[in-house]
Design a protein around this nucleic acid. Structure first.
Lengths: 125, 125
DNA sequence: CCCTATGTTCAATGTTTATTGAACTATCAA
DNA sequence: TTGATAGTTCAATAAACATTGAACATAGGG
């Protein structure tokens, strides 16, 4: 098992892959949730997304989100901490992430986005 | 054969479907080309995209672009005229189309976008 | 050292996707 | 009516995708 998962460089981030990643409701919800908590803590653990799907299915989606450059995974003990690659995304495709996030927010009732009540739960790493 | 192809209403346009549609390089190129010529004429025929793929494959992609609400097809004789549903897209997801188009423009060298020389060809319907 | 918690990897499954060419439909023009 | 033009529909195919559960790996706590 590779110590640190693979991440593309900023320049390797491709528009079609990013759009394809965001087009899956579960992945969109993951990105949305990461963005939501960004002000609280920029990182979330895999288990914080357990409302969205099972563990192995989430691992699959996390890998896709990493591969397309949308998020970065940091290994810390038995936990993996994920965060959005905001700066890289903004450098490659200015405004894209924010527009997609606000579009998702607008349609929050139609998408399987997790309720904002997660904000109550303080992270205690 | 239905006289007029099916189009979703503005409210039926869904974010994941739109992003998925835009994530395919050929469809992104179609949308890009439609946007490019918008100042010349807001409509293009199927055959104007023949550089991107074969006829039947294009018909498949056109159907997807219609189904997700990105473009509208008008039947006129033996021709079909396509145009972007800019207003509807803007109403549903403000800024999304423009950001995707400018992101595509930034990566024009990496994408199979048709060269701008098509602008020379005046439409003579 | 075991036990548990966290997450990944693998194999299997069924679905959707993109692509091709052939057949088809419809319109226009001679 | 004949022929050409413009595009759709269909069937077949191969690849990619999402989902599941089981097996595995790793780290931390008693």
């Amino acid at each position: 098992m590779s110590r640190t998962p693979h991440h593309p460089t900023r320049e390797q981030i491709e528009l079609p892959m990013v759009l394809d990643c965001l087009s899956d409701p579960i992945r969109l919800a993951i990105v949305y949730q990461l963005a939501q908590q960004e002000r609280v803590s920029s990182e979330l653990r895999c288990s914080d997304f357990s409302a969205l799907s099972g563990k192995s299915n989430l691992a699959y989606h996390f890998a896709k989100l990493r591969d397309c450059g949308l998020m970065r995974t940091r290994v810390a003990g038995t936990n993996r901490f994920m965060r959005l690659r905001r700066e890289d995304l903004e450098a490659r495709f200015p405004g894209l992430l924010d527009v997609v996030l606000s579009s998702a927010a607008k349609d929050a009732d139609r998408l399987p986005l997790v309720s904002g009540c997660e904000l109550v739960e303080v992270d205690r790493k």
